[in-house]
C-alpha cells in the first residue's frame, strides 16, 4: 500500500531523514515512534506529498507521489501535527471544504460529510465556529477532515497530543475502529499508546530506522535483562564502590537527585540473577539507607530507550 524507498531529506546541512525504507501493507495500523525531532513529521510530510524528498521514492497504492501526485493524494487522509484548522469556519463548513478539496463527487458529498461527522461524534457541534471549540473537539474536527472522501490511507501525526485522559481513550478507540477499513499510520512519542493501538512499530531516531517489529517482539528483545530501581540515602557517597563488589552487576546509573537528599538509581545486572538480597545486605553494612527497592518490569519504553542508546553508541564508534 505504501512503499518508502531509500528516502532522504535534508534541511541545509541537517539530515532530517536519512535513507529510510519500509513497506506498509493494506489494513495495517502502523506506529511511527521516536523522540522529538527524530524525523517522524518529516517522514509523514513526505508520504503525504507536502515535502519532496531529496532522494528516493514514495509509492502510494501503485502511484508515485512525485510523478502522479493527484492519484496518490486522493488515497490519503492527513491529520497534520498541531491540528491546523480554519478558525473562521464552522465544523460543517470545514468538513465540506475538505470534501471539495478532495474532489468528493457532488452527489456523494452530503452523505459522506454526514457519515464522518457521525463517526467522529461532531453532529452536536456541526454549526459551531471552530475557534470556539475545545482542544478535544478540534482534534476530532481535524480527524473528520482526514476521513472525509473515504481515503484508503489515514496518516495521523500525533493525534492525541494535548488531550485529557478521557479524550485520549476516545480518540484511541476511534483509531482502532478506523483500522478495520483503512490503512493507518500514526506517529507518537508515547509508547503505551503505540503498543495499545498498533500491530507494527517503526522506531526512528535521528532520521534513521532503528527497528521495525511488533510491540510484543520489541519487548521480548530486552526482557533478558534484569533491572532494579532503587531510592537511597547515601551520605558518604559509597554506593559505586559498594555496588562494584556485587557479582553480576553490569551497570549503575543515576536517574535523579531528589531534593530531600536521596538519589534514584537503576542497577542492571546479568540475566537471571536476583541481586536484590545482596544489595540489601551490602548497602546496610555500608550505611546506605534504602528507601525503595523494586524490580523493574520491562516495557516497550525500555526497548525503545535501549534501541536508541545502542544505535547512538554504534554511531559514535
Amino acid at each position: 500500500m505504501i512503499e518508502v524507498k531509500n528516502v532522504t531529506k535534508k534541511y541545509g546541512s541537517f539530515t532530517a531523514v536519512d535513507n529510510i525504507s519500509f513497506n506498509i501493507e493494506e489494513g495495517e495500523i502502523v506506529g511511527l515512534l521516536g523522540p522529538n525531532g527524530a524525523g517522524k513529521s518529516t517522514t509523514m510530510n513526505m508520504i503525504t506529498g507536502f515535502l519532496e524528498p531529496d532522494e528516493g521514492e514514495i509509492i502510494i497504492d501503485g502511484n508515485s507521489i512525485l510523478k502522479k501526485p493527484k492519484k496518490a493524494k486522493k488515497q490519503i487522509g492527513y491529520m497534520p501535527e498541531g491540528v491546523p484548522l480554519y478558525n473562521d469556519l464552522t465544523v460543517k463548513e470545514f468538513i465540506n471544504y475538505m470534501a471539495d478539496l478532495k474532489m468528493v463527487q457532488r452527489n456523494e458529498k452530503k452523505e459522506n460529510v454526514q457519515k464522518v461527522m457521525e463517526q467522529t461524534n461532531l453532529i452536536e457541534v456541526q454549526n459551531k465556529l471552530i475557534r470556539n471549540l475545545s482542544r478535544g473537539y478540534k482534534q476530532r474536527v481535524s480527524m473528520a477532515g482526514a476521513l472525509v472522501g473515504n481515503p484508503k490511507i489515514l496518516i495521523l501525526d500525533e493525534p492525541t497530543v494535548g488531550l485529557d485522559p478521557k479524550q485520549i481513550t476516545e480518540i484511541r478507540s476511534l483509531i482502532k475502529s478506523l483500522g478495520k477499513e483503512h490503512t493507518v499510520i500514526l506517529s507518537s512519542h508515547i509508547l503505551s499508546e503505540i503498543s495499545q493501538i498498533c500491530k507494527k512499530v517503526i522506531i526512528i531516531n535521528k532520521g534513521k530506522i532503528i527497528a521495525i517489529d511488533t510491540p510484543e517482539n520489541l519487548e521480548e528483545k530486552v526482557k533478558d535483562e534484569n533491572a532494579v530501581t532503587l531510592t537511597v540515602e547515601d551520605k558518604d557517597n559509597k554506593i559505586e564502590e559498594v555496588t562494584k563488589q556485587i557479582k553480576g552487576i553490569k551497570e549503575l546509573k543515576l536517574i535523579k537527585d531528589n531534593e530531600d537528599g536521596t538519589k534514584d538509581y537503576v542497577i542492571i545486572s546479568e540475566e537471571k540473577i536476583d541481586i536484590r538480597k545482596e544489595i540489601f545486605e551490602k548497602y546496610a553494612k555500608a550505611h546506605i539507607t534504602i528507601f525503595e527497592l523494586k524490580k523493574r518490569e520491562t516495557t516497550l519504553e525500555d526497548a525503545f530507550m535501549k534501541l536508541i542508546e545502542n544505535k547512538d553508541e554504534e554511531g559514535n564508534k
Binding site: 510530510n45 503525504t48 506529498g49 507536502f50 501526485p69 493527484k70 492519484k71 493524494k73 486522493k74 490519503i76 492527513y78 497534520p80 501535527e81 498541531g82 491546523p84 484548522l85 480554519y86 478558525n87 475538505m98 478539496l101 478532495k102 474532489m103 477532515g145
Partner: peptide
Amino acid sequence: KVGTEQLLYTSPRS
C-alpha cells in the same frame, strides 16, 4: 503560520 497549508498542499488540488 497556522499550518493549514498542509491541508491545502496535501489535497489532490494542484
